[in-house]
């Protein structure tokens, strides 16, 4: 049997100079800065809007799921299982490439991406809210009901506001995932950050645009990651 190594090293290409010209040629990025900034804006607004829609949808799903009525909790369960249990890429391809077959056509790539990311994000947000709501002491609901508030009023005025505060760190984590997941939308041709970088890379045969894209993702995500870390530490201190 012939042995073929799964990876080949070609040391003639492995030089400091090559690394510099192929990965760190930032003049090339500067030449295309308008395209990159515009793409970054698309990435940020896509993630931001999808998070907003996802939070609204996710809150309803969470309330449905914890409801005593099977008629409400069962559909929510199915929804959450489907979107958490299947790959985002599969969901995107189904939503964008196959729906025209049944007469539903997305004219805007941005909107197709927004719908997919929102539907997907809502499932994760729902789980975050559900555990947040269930973490509030049962006595609060009982106290609310005893003081004459209805189930809905107690939820709205007492439980959900408290739960929301506790869910900020996991929600921010989810937002970070969402920002990174916007890159998957590039598959359908939306010129967000990853696709813009790949277009420049294919024109210049240079890796720098992708390094630049990675750095931009990092610049957006890292502050959020550190923000949640601090927040979690502070919340822990309060409850301790």
């Amino acid at each position: 049997m012939q042995f073929e190594p799964p990876i080949e090293f070609d040391f003639s290409n492995f030089s400091l100079e090559n690394i510099q010209t192929k990965y760190l040629d930032f003049g090339l990025v500067w030449d295309n800065i308008d395209v990159i900034l515009q793409a970054t804006l698309i990435t940020i607004s896509l993630a931001f809007l999808a998070e907003l829609v996802g939070i609204v949808l996710g809150l309803f799903l969470a309330l449905m799921k914890i409801s005593k009525s099977r008629l409400l909790s069962f559909p929510a369960q199915i929804y959450i299982d489907f979107f958490r249990g299947t790959p985002l890429l599969v969901q995107l391809i189904i939503i964008y490439f196959t729906t025209p077959l049944i007469g539903l056509r997305f004219e805007s790539l941005f909107f197709a991406g927004l719908v997919t990311l929102s539907l997907n994000g809502a499932a994760y947000v729902a789980e975050i809210f559900r555990s947040g709501i269930q973490s509030i002491d049962r006595g609060q609901m009982e106290a609310g009901r005893a003081s004459g508030l209805s189930y809905g009023q107690t939820m709205r005025h007492i439980i959900v506001p408290q739960a929301f505060r506790r869910t900020i760190p996991p929600l921010t984590n989810e937002f970070v995932m969402l920002i990174k997941d916007t890159s998957i939308i590039s598959v359908i041709g939306l010129e967000e950050l990853l696709r813009a970088a790949r277009v420049i890379q294919s024109e210049t045969f240079n890796g720098t645009p992708l390094i630049a894209a990675a750095l931009i993702y990092l610049a957006i995500c890292l502050p959020l990651i550190y923000f949640t870390n601090t927040l979690e530490r502070r919340l822990n201190r309060k409850t301790a």
Partner: peptide, 10 residues
Amino acid sequence: VACGGGSGGG
């Protein structure tokens, strides 16, 4: 990987 590559190339 080596097996896969080997049988293909052989």
